[in-house]
Design a protein around this nucleic acid. Structure first.
Length: 444
RNA sequence: GCGGGCGUAGCUCAACUGGUUAGAGCACUCCCCUGUCACGGGAGAGGUUGAGGGUUCAAGUCCCUUCGCUCGCGCCA
């Protein structure tokens, strides 16, 4: 479009004529005076059709929300009395000199910015994604991913692309989607970039990937989806899992300050504040957390191999009150609860050098040190009841020399959900795949 | 998979212990409106109360079946 001016730049064109294109956000029809809020990818501005423009008025009164229009207009500073300090571009206004309808829109299923139930929201996503709040959420998500890349690249991590089609149900979880492959073979959708990430440590030492992963679990909660984005990283030459945790916190701190800086408008729209990340976050062993829960609440979960969701919520609340931290790391989960590649702590046998990072009541990251010795790894595979032969491709990396290493996997959607304090991870997922939904409803 | 909750207009909800013709706000249609910014005012249209069966003089309301959604749990990020 020739000489189109983006709405966010309109203030540079005061007193001159411009061409603006976008969607009708709202029409306020006063009879001989019509106001139109025009939205484009960059922002919103009020436009007005004055009473003397009879031809334009007859077009403008037909306009409805979400119609796409192209407008010729003069950019005016608003008179003092009509300045609206509450909104973007509240001090300027477009005086419309011509309107062309580019695309009409059907009657809306409901108003764009009203709160609706989550199933209505999800079933109408091409429309609901246009709402102010949803646009804010995914703008923030875009900044999270961007900063994740930037900060790791700045620290000499190399980004790689992990395959999504894999040849074996690698970790033996049974929660994988099967796919027909060539020559009557079965392939699987990757549940994690883990094994490839470790292979890549042998190549570049420090690597990361933002990888789509798939989990065929029939869960139905506010924190699970069947396809999500895993922000993974893996680094070599570490001392233990604490080095991984330090690198992770550094990464999260960098993302938080970036979002705080770049997304002030979005945070305001969402009426939320980012989680608190103090200089030192509480780090506790699983057994210590369980003892604490017993001491403070009387509930005895000290023998359990894992924390239940209610315990995770409890320890997060405790960490916030006691340490002013929305983050808490829980380390040393038992060997039985962790995958075969997890490093066992020599000083605390049957517990692992691994951690979960919890944020605002939910686990957002799992990480730790990995086994780097080939023979030890083969033994662990066997101990888990898996067949080392089906890992022969992966094991090559260890045959040819691997440094001590570790890393993490962090759910992008959960991270977004917790940063913005959203009640459901599906609201932080553009097109959530879950038991009942894969764009069109699976059910009739 | 198990357990709880819900299903009433396009959307969000109301309808006391079963009781006239199932209501409201928004959206929609028409009319009025020169300063609104979720504009305002007036009128109108819109329903097999998810579906099927049962109890009752009478069912949106109670019971059964079924479908759908949602929340919690298991599993996990």
């Amino acid at each position: 479009m020739q000489n189109r001016v983006l709405i966010k730049n309109l203030k540079e064109y005061i007193d001159s004529e411009v061409l603006v294109a976008g969607w009708i956000n709202v029409r306020r029809d006063h009879g001989k005076l019509i106001f139109l809020d025009i939205r484009d990818g960059s922002g919103i501005v009020q436009a007005v059709v004055l009473p003397d423009k009879k031809d334009i008025l007859s077009t403008a009164e037909k306009l409805r929300p979400e119609w796409v229009v192209e407008i010729k207009a003069k950019v005016n500073r608003r008179p003092e009395k009509m300045i609206n300090a509450e909104i973007l571009n509240g001090d300027i206004e477009l005086e419309i000199l011509g309107v062309e309808v580019v695309s009409e829109a059907d009657e809306l299923p409901f108003e764009k910015d009203v709160e609706v139930n989550i199933d209505t929201y999800l079933d109408n996503m091409p429309f609901t994604l246009r709402s102010e709040k949803t646009r804010a959420i995914f703008k923030v998500q875009s900044e999270i991913v961007g900063e994740y890349r930037r900060t790791l690249a700045d620290r000499s991590f190399i980004e790689y692309q992990s395959p999504k089609l894999v040849g074996d149900d690698a970790e033996g979880g049974g929660n994988v989607f099967k796919v027909d492959y060539f020559n009557d073979k079965t392939a699987f959708l990757a549940t994690s970039p883990q094994l490839y990430k470790q292979i890549m440590v042998g190549v570049y030492e420090k690597v990361f990937t933002t990888s789509t992963v798939f989990r065929a679990e029939k869960h139905s909660t506010t924190r699970h989806i069947n396809e999500y984005t895993s922000l993974d990283a893996e680094l070599g030459f570490i001392k233990d899992h604490n080095d991984v945790l330090i690198e992770l916190i550094k990464t999260i701190r960098s993302i938080l300050s970036h979002v705080a800086d770049k997304c002030q408008d979005e945070l305001k729209v969402l009426n939320t504040t980012l989680p608190k990340l103090p200089q030192d976050i509480p780090v506790m062993k699983l057994r210590e957390v369980q003892e604490l829960i017993k001491k403070e609440t009387g509930e005895d979960c000290t023998g359990e191999p894992d924390l239940e969701p209610s315990h995770e919520r409890w320890i997060c609340k405790y960490a916030l009150e006691k340490f002013g931290s929305d983050f808490v790391a829980v380390t040393h989960y038992p060997v039985s609860k962790r995958p075969f590649y997890t490093y066992e702590d020599e000083d605390d046998l049957s517990f692992t050098k691994s951690f979960d990072l919890l944020c605002r009541g939910v686990e957002i990251t799992t990480g730790g040190q990995r086994i780097n010795n080939h023979d030890q790894l083969v033994d662990k595979i066997k101990e888990k009841g898996l067949d080392p032969k089906s890992f022969s491709f992966y094991l090559q990396a260890f045959k040819y020399g691997m440094p001590p290493h570790g890393g993490w996997g962090m759910g992008l959607e959960r991270l977004t959900q917790k940063f913005l304090d959203l009640d459901n991870v599906k609201k932080a997922t553009l097109f959530p795949r879950e038991i009942n939904r894969i764009d069109s409803l699976l059910s009739k």
